[in-house]
Design a protein around this nucleic acid. Sequence first.
DNA 1: GCCGTTTTCGGCCCGACTGTTTTCAGTCG
Length: 577
Amino acid sequence: MAKRMRNRDIAGYCERLANLLEIDGANPFRVRAWRNAAETMAGLSQSVADLVESDIDLTEYPHIGRDIAEGVRTLVTTGHLPPLDEIARRVPPELADLMQVQGLGPKGVKALYEQFQLHTLDDLERVAREGRVRELSGFGARKEAALLDGIRQLRATGEQRTRLADAEPVAAPLRDRLAAIPGVTEVTIAGSYRRRRATVGDIDLLVASDNGEAVMERLVEDDDVERVVSHGATRSTVILGDGLQVDARAVAPDSFGAALLYFTGSKRHNVALRQRAVDRGWKLNEYGLYDGDEPLEAASEAAIYRRLGLDWIPPELREDHGEIAAAESGSLPELVTVDAIRGNLHGHTDWSDGKDTLEAMIDAARERGHEYIAITDHGPRVRIANGLSPERLAEQADAIDAVAAEYDDITILKGCEVDILADGSLDLPDEVLARLDIIVCSIHYELRRSRAEQTERVLRAMENPHFMIWGHPTAREINRRDPIDIDMDRCLQAAAERCIAVEINAQPKRLDLSDTNARLALEKGCRIAVDTDAHATRHFDLLRHGIDQARRAGATAGDIINTRNLDDLRNLLRSRA
DNA sequence: GCCGTTTTCGGCCCGACTGTTTTCAGTCG
């Protein structure tokens, strides 16, 4: 068995093969087939390697047929993707990486390779600096400069996507500035931003105006704009000072709905919708839904969905994960909202590594209308966070009792975020845990252990009857730290069987569980806790980021334990023991 | 290479922008 592959790795191989096939001039539909399969696997909540190991037929999944299933099976077991090895004999595999340079596609890479025998980004940079790229037919001085720009940018940002919460404070003000332009009736940030993905690759700004040209003029002149990549009458691309790319499109107000649908995506969702239109003898594009040349609907998303026989689908669900079938049968889930949350079950005070006092945290929860709040400072193992010993935990309990007496509008739950040690034991003894109302169990250390070890670690911890909520289950930090390697399928199954809730941690750097893992958790029958893991009063406002991911997983209020009233919540937690 | 209640063969999204090949190919989303 080769080193265990993550879905992301497998998708990477398929994507690489697709790039090389494209450079080689293969049938474009064959290229797309591998890309589609890559996307399917990247978005799958189950581990593809597990599926292969369990002999599950991969062709059950969309866009994976006999050949690709066979290739992936071989890849997982041997570390080799045969068609990739085959093409690598003719096309240097490193060329696939050159396609990441903005403005450089398969044709360009092929031409550069044939002319200069260049393989790598460094080769390309050298040839471009020497001014030789412009000699090539189809290239010129401007293209050469653009490629150098593209190389610089690729080196600066890599493939890294921007966290949604980091994109918001840049994108929203720009949106508001465009909205203030005379004649603009509406501006919406579409794309993965509107679908609330945890990270965004760029910002898709959609503007409704009868004078798109004026909007584009204003955009490229904006103070935040560092570089203009393209600039047209209805469409422009700019790079902002912090490196974030913005794709802006202007459309007439009466086709805003169709454009919004189109530019919100996902690509997969759009393809499925267009197919549905074609099945009815119509055509759907960014300008509207048409019967021949006759426009049927365009002004609103809801009207277009309705005409296609579908309920309006919330953007968070538009990933082609079965939402279209659900919209057809009227069985879309009623997604949870921020307002449905009655309390936060994971948060810290200055007793451990929180910034604010017990009283301040309670007041912050009251200001947000919460009915209860759990105080879950760290257990002793997390020493750097000033984790609480049993003695200090007892002191804190007295402090909570004293404070609680002053409030009649909120209930304070005594809790702890205990550490799951490497051997699966918890960092506080059972008799201490037994005195608490709520116990969040999380992994903070020893993140690089093997999959088998991590799985055993968590399964063993879950045997403890005091394990109530699995906190930030994979310990990932977006763009900074990979998730731990663990058999999520088995652990979520165990959580479901033991009535353990799994957390969606709303800290923007975590968002852990991820949307796909949260979806898997729901499929397994787990209940979910959406928690802020607040370390300061202002962190209560991060809740919406966790709710975004819960919605992307298709969660209703009923799936979330902290939408329950206090009695129901207590019963749920007690059913654990 | 995938897919399928009009199909196991013949489809597979397409429009905007750029730069360069003076009429369009390549790239992108």
